[in-house]
């Protein structure tokens, strides 16, 4: 983990309230797809945890939804402005576990961390299948970007205005070697039940005090005992989650 000053090099709206921000700065503390950063916003006490969508040696990309005052302030920031960011937080996904035909399932702003994962999986010769779940057509983002990586992409919308009508579980393929997912809790729980028998990794979300393991603000109970979502997670093996089906 490292703290650094990042410069906004790109900032655009992908939908009505979802933004993509490119940040240039030192990414040497990052080690895996699915890790997150903690962004300090002027005038706010706590940092905001946001997943890394993509990164290389010169910078990173985040995609975030405006849900409150902090993300609203972020949305007003301009290219050239600087942000204080802590990078390299959390464990991240394990691409090496994916096998031949891994399944990636993202819901809403759970989609971004799967992007760099898909990139890694393609690079290691796997053929990832990606399901992106949204509420309606206007909310869809990054469908083309995933397809451009060479992944198979299926979009689902709850209201049927685009792609397969229903939740992500309405579009599960017949066969897949592993399942990676990030999204809202009801989606993860439904997917957990629907993918019994296949191993996988789920990325979870909790309100955070610190984001690096110091405050115990984000503890969850797992089959292996108490775990901190920020430091022991945010990615947990499906088998470790003590969820009732």
């Amino acid at each position: 983990m490292k703290q650094g000053i990042f410069t906004i090099t790109g900032h655009e709206a992908l939908t009505k309230d979802v933004y993509r921000m490119a940040l240039a700065g030192d990414t040497s503390a990052m080690s895996a797809p699915g890790q997150f950063v903690e962004i300090s916003l002027p005038g706010f006490f706590l940092r905001r945890p946001i997943s890394v969508c993509d990164y290389d040696a010169s910078g990173l990309v985040i995609i975030y939804k405006v849900v409150g005052r902090g993300t609203e302030a972020m949305a007003a920031m301009k290219e050239g402005e600087k942000l204080d960011v802590i990078t390299g937080l959390g464990n991240g996904f394990s691409p090496e576990k994916g096998g031949e035909k891994p399944l990636l399932v993202g819901g809403g702003v759970g989609v971004p961390p799967l992007y760099h994962l898909a990139k890694r999986l393609v690079a290691q010769g796997a053929r990832p299948e990606v399901i992106l779940g949204f509420n309606k057509a206007e909310e869809i983002f990054y469908e083309k970007e995933f397809a451009a990586l060479g992944a198979g992409v299926t979009v689902t919308t709850v209201d049927g205005s685009a792609g397969v009508k229903g939740f992500v579980t309405a579009a599960l393929p017949d066969a897949y070697s592993y399942v990676y997912s990030c999204g809202p809790m009801p989606m993860l729980r439904a997917l957990y039940a629907a993918t019994q028998g296949t191993a996988g990794e789920f990325s979870l979300e909790e309100r955070m005090g610190c984001g690096f393991g110091a405050c115990m603000g984000c503890s969850i109970m797992t089959k292996k005992g108490s775990r901190r979502v920020c430091k022991d997670g945010p990615v947990f093996e499906k088998e470790e989650l003590a969820w009732q089906i």
């Binding site: 006490f45 309100r207 955070m208 405050c215 603000g217 503890s219």
Partner: peptide
Amino acid sequence: TPRIAETPSGMINAV
């Protein structure tokens, strides 16, 4: 959880 909330210039915890 949630155990954490933010306030102006501060935070609330219920760890």
